[in-house]
Write a protein that binds this DNA or RNA. Structure first.
Lengths: 161, 161
DNA sequence: TATTAGCCCATGGTAACCCATGGTCTCCCA
DNA sequence: TGGGAGACCATGGGTTACCATGGGCTAATA
């Protein structure tokens, strides 16, 4: 399994720790493929929603090379680099598979003592439970009313991430 | 991890010293790869913002080769070379991982007793805290309004293409 | 000799590491 | 098919090591 699927609810303890759902941990392990950062993860605030995005390190770093094609001294490069990297938080799970959520991200997502992990395929999101529910309903509505479809061939070929 | 990620706030003490954030030190160590300058760093004033740029020596020197393709006696070469090298300050961290910020750079960035390290991937910036916050907001806005996106849509935070 | 800058040691706070426990699900066997 | 045992997973707490910070000391300079 190489995709984050499903929705999981876990508790945020007094130290700000939360267990990464076991299925998500399995995905991270698979993508890390035995390397040292089998429990590593990059967190960043979504700037579209009040939630936290969770990225496998390899996937996150794959966003870098396109950036390097921009003029190193251009304005665009600076803005992108700042937007992408300055708010990123690399975290590592402890041996129980827990991560600590940085304060800045906790407040960005309005988290209290219970959080929801929402699988989005190549990455996932962390939400406050009620906001997560609203978001899921909204996503379903929008997907239907906008007649969103998948890129051609997706259902025949399985897709390539 | 070979990229500078996240934002860190540290204090500038009475002697003008400041701790380089531990994660950034780890990146510098990795890039230096055990060589003698594991704690070395090149500082220079940003010419776009009131902040200090921090470069790993190897990355900084890699900016040289493009310069060498310009006519050695042309105006462009002179201007670029001056901008790149004349204001650069090589510094080295003490055994606690602190560096001394040169006075010229401190005043260029309007630093007082608290400074912010902002990771930008291959290098980082040092800011006065409030200016840093303004800059981050600006970068996010500009990145979004200019429709600067990366394959994968990271900055749109939504689609999965 | 007075002054400054760099080097080294010391300390408090905090975050990461490690061990322990309870609950739940699944699988196996009667 | 029901009961029991094992394994996994989420959760709680104590302890250690690291990190940021402050201050003193020594060596270079004027």
């Amino acid at each position: 399994m190489t995709h984050f699927l499903g929705t999981h609810q876990n508790r945020l303890d007094a130290k700000g720790r939360v267990s990464v759902p076991a299925p998500f941990r399995a995905v991270l392990r698979t993508l890390a493929n035995g390397s040292d950062d089998a429990a590593a993860l990059v967190l960043r605030p979504s700037h579209k929603h009040p939630c936290i995005e969770g990225w496998p390190p390899a996937t996150f770093h794959a966003l870098g090379p396109p950036l390097e094609r921009l003029d190193l001294f251009g304005e665009d490069h600076d803005d992108l680099a700042a937007a992408l990297y300055a708010d990123a938080h690399p975290v590592e799970a402890d041996r129980e598979g827990r991560i600590v959520l940085p304060d800045a991200l906790v407040s960005h997502a309005n988290l209290s003592d219970t959080v929801v992990f929402m699988g989005l395929g190549r990455w996932f999101q962390i939400w406050e439970p009620e906001a997560a529910e609203r978001r899921r309903i909204e996503a379903r509505e929008r997907a239907r009313s906008a007649h969103l479809t998948l890129p051609g061939g997706a259902l025949r070929a399985g897709n390539g991430a």
